[in-house]
Design a protein around this nucleic acid. Sequence first.
RNA 1: GGCCACGUAGCUCAAUUGGAUAGAGUACCUGAUUACGGCUCAGGAGGUUGAGGGUUCGACUCCUUCCGUGGUCACCA
Length: 613
Amino acid sequence: MGMLANLQAEIKGAIKHVFDYQLPDNQLIVSPTKKEFEGEYTFVTFPLVKALKNKPEVLGEQMGAYLKENSSIVSDFNVVKGFLNLSLNDGFWSTALSTVGDETFGSKPANGKTFMVEFSSPNTNKPLHLGHIRNILLGWSMAQIAEANGYKVIKTQVINDRGIAVCKSMIAWQDLGEGKTPESTGTKGDHFVGSYYVAFEQVFQKEYKAWQETDVGQEVFSSLAKEGQDAETFFKGYKNKYFNEYSAIGARTKEMLLKWEADNPEVKALWEKMNGWVYDGFETTYKKLGVDFDYNNYESETYLLGKEFVDEGLKSGVFYKKDDGSTWIDLESAKMDHKIVLRSDGTSVYVTQDLGTAHQRYEQYKMDHLVYVVADEQDYHFKVLFEILKRLGEPYADSLYHLSYGMVDLPSGKMKSREGTVVDADDLVEEVIGEARKASQERGGLEGISTEEQEEIYRKVGLSALKYFIIKVNPKKRMTFDPKESVDMQGQTGPYIQNAYVRIQSIFRKAGVTKADQPQEALEFNNLERDLIVQLSQYPHVLEEAFNKYDPSIIANYSYTLAKSFHRFYHDCRILNAETESLKQNRLYLSQTIGSILESSMQLLGMEMPEYM
RNA sequence: GGCCACGUAGCUCAAUUGGAUAGAGUACCUGAUUACGGCUCAGGAGGUUGAGGGUUCGACUCCUUCCGUGGUCACCA
């Protein structure tokens, strides 16, 4: 990092000297030179044109000449329009390499601040699916990136373990379960419970269909349907109303929820038993994905939290009450609507809970950042939530961020649980690992390694294919997930990057050393080596940028270009058979640095490097 | 309909934040390499950056008007 600052200072000095002009820092644009041109770094002279009233070419020539003459690091230059391309001398590259090769390079000292991130946040009535995987990868990566930027990190998830949906699975298990358990059926707990949720929907739909044919159903249709609306469309929209007002199984479900809220021991026992099964299942999936949490928020413990806020807010006039007893906030001045915060029966809604949870977290952890990783369908919810917290004068209101990401589509279109097109997380993980195993065995590449180690490698490789495929996309963009491409291992993929690392390890094994030191004597660097050093030196900036923009895909793309450059270098330049011993040492040292940065950057994205593949 | 995102090669994605001739991968075609572990490397072809207008030395990027896609406008979470 210091190396670029050095160059910038020299350029600034040159401008002062040649033109007697002080260039503002924000106009001092120095970037790596594009491949088509000679040189390694480029200074953009356009900003000088206005102030100095001269042609950009002339300014570039004058500065270049001065720098070549007087600078200790510039060896040559050329000017194309407003671009001054600078070539730097071997001494510069030598110190640059030792900078990036330092073990502390890229890591930032602790800054004493706390970064909290909420992600995954599953419901206990369904197993995790592809959408959760994108969420988890984003949340996990942001946690790692924050840590690399010096923050103390707290990873948390909200488990939506209560409510009407959870009661549905419970009712279905009571009716249809015959006392079966995950153990007795050999089913993973979350899948086991999820199947009863599905069963409930089937029973309910059957009941609803039958009701539609009854006199009552027909009367509802003819009296409430809009003109020209057909029965199917009408009843689709009427489903919730039916559930609440007519359905027998719906009534039983609601009754169960009331009992749950009244702490009925039998209901609570059943609830705990079934949720326990689900948690076991989630744990298995998280473990396989290689993620964990520092603590969980259970909705059953937080769903009442926001109420006291409402009282305070009513007093201070932030909220107002309607005649029916419901409580609202008027957000029109912030270009939003009126929003309900307490129902007329006094119970709280989604935002109310989130208000309370945010407050509780701050009380407990005094975090400096709180990031919610939630899909972009909830953009409006978070705008509302943050605005309310601001109006309530919460001290942390400005440190909140909604990391909003686009939904994951399949090549065939949207995932829809009702149509059974949801991609299950566990299935997906098994599939990519299976593909890695298959590909490896076809090549017969892992002979002489124990079966357990082989399996561990397949896991690392398969998961990196899957994870990279998802994390490389800018979070806010909606993405298409093609299962076929997600198991690819060639091209811009996780395994391609792993392969660069494995090659480096292999070189060291071949060389019979574990570590390389930088040679002391003066050396020459070729284009490929210089390019690699430039890329390596950007790592700290990449880290910062990924953190500031909440965007792990920046790191994913960086790792790929670095791996690509290495593969090319590896192809064109002999390392162990280099012309001289010191050149060999130098290249080993460079390779070692690349390997270590590839490893740490991929680790930020939740991907592990194998030693063989 | 209001509001919010997003529209870049056939497909999946980039573009150092306003910089050079818009780049990668994939698929397709052509070559290299019997090895420092080829899950590699090089080359070819593929573009009016959804459309129009504006701002300026310079626009995928900023402003504006359309068009398209998705999301959201629940006393669900």
